[in-house]
């Protein structure tokens, strides 16, 4: 299923989509594949693989630490592509979140080609704005990949419309001003931002930054099409005493999030 189809299906069911994030290669390449497959099996609708990067300025301490562990383990860009291929075989759509330099280094068109060949659905680009994305716009068109750019509460109406017009698949709304990481409360600014996006597009809107359990997922899912969860899932693996315990805790949280996005009242 494509990302678009997953959102359409969820919309028909009157629920939100659960999007779960995990860095490739954390704690190992095989371990990250097992983790993401477990998330998919437990009901996560879209898997967001993060490409570990040395300077992740949009990420909070949990994902930074996981990325550092992955890089220290020697993970390469081609390992991330291998992880995407393995997870995509489950039938759940897989998008890649990546800072821009590793893609530019690989070669933008070559990467788009190899991502498509691996079964990846598209890219989320936290430090690439459409203004700088000429090459990626062309490559994603050529290889039929989705493009998710970020919008922020501080985006002007004009920028928001321009950014959304360049998205395909879904739009990523950074609901609070800040880096990734679980928070006690999700942002009050989020519903307002989602409404602003909806005013200019029919594309589904995913809200990220801060969700840590099913109850919060239900809350976010009441106004957004997609609920993006990262740090809380990564923490399951980070804080587990061993791999089996990590996978068990990951399954439990994934199932809780899957229930949450189905408990949405709209």
């Amino acid at each position: 299923m494509s990302v678009t189809e997953v959102f359409e299906k969820a919309r028909a069911e009157g629920r939100a989509v659960a999007i779960g994030c995990m860095p490739a290669g954390f704690p190992t390449v095989e371990g990250s594949i097992a983790a993401m497959v477990a998330m998919a099996e437990a009901g996560i609708d879209v898997i967001e693989v993060e490409l570990p990067y040395s300077d992740p300025v949009m990420d909070g301490p949990v994902i930074q630490k996981a990325s550092d562990i992955a890089l220290a383990g020697g993970v390469r860009t081609r390992d991330t592509l291998r992880a995407i291929e393995a997870v995509a075989r489950t039938g759940v759509p897989v998008v890649l979140m990546t800072y821009w330099n590793p893609i530019e280094r690989y070669g933008v068109d070559a990467f788009a080609r190899d991502l498509a060949a691996a079964g990846g659905a598209g890219l989320i680009t936290p430090d690439l704005i459409p203004d700088e994305a000429e090459e990626w716009l062309a490559a994603s068109d050529a290889h039929q990949l989705d493009r998710t750019f970020l919008v922020s509460p501080s985006s002007t109406d004009q920028r928001l419309a321009m950014t959304v017009a360049n998205c395909r698949g879904f739009v990523y709304a950074t609901a609070v001003m800040g880096v990734t990481g679980a928070r006690e409360q999700t942002s009050a600014a989020a519903p307002a931002l989602v409404a602003r996006v909806r005013a200019v597009t029919d594309l589904p809107v995913g809200v990220g930054l801060g969700v840590r359990d099913g109850a919060q997922a239900a809350e976010v899912g009441s106004f957004a099409d997609g609920v993006i969860v990262g740090s809380a899932l990564v923490r399951c693996v980070l804080e587990a005493p061993d791999e089996a315990a990590g996978l068990a805790s990951l399954r439990a949280l994934s199932a809780d999030l899957a229930r949450g996005v189905r408990a949405v009242t709209r």
Partner: peptide, 20 residues
């Protein structure tokens, strides 16, 4: 005007910083 020196420079930052 977009902050480039030939192919260099520009803005490779999160959208959240663009307004600032």
């Amino acid at each position: 005007v977009s902050g480039h020196f030939g192919r260099y420079g520009g803005r490779f930052v999160p959208e959240a910083l663009i307004a600032a």
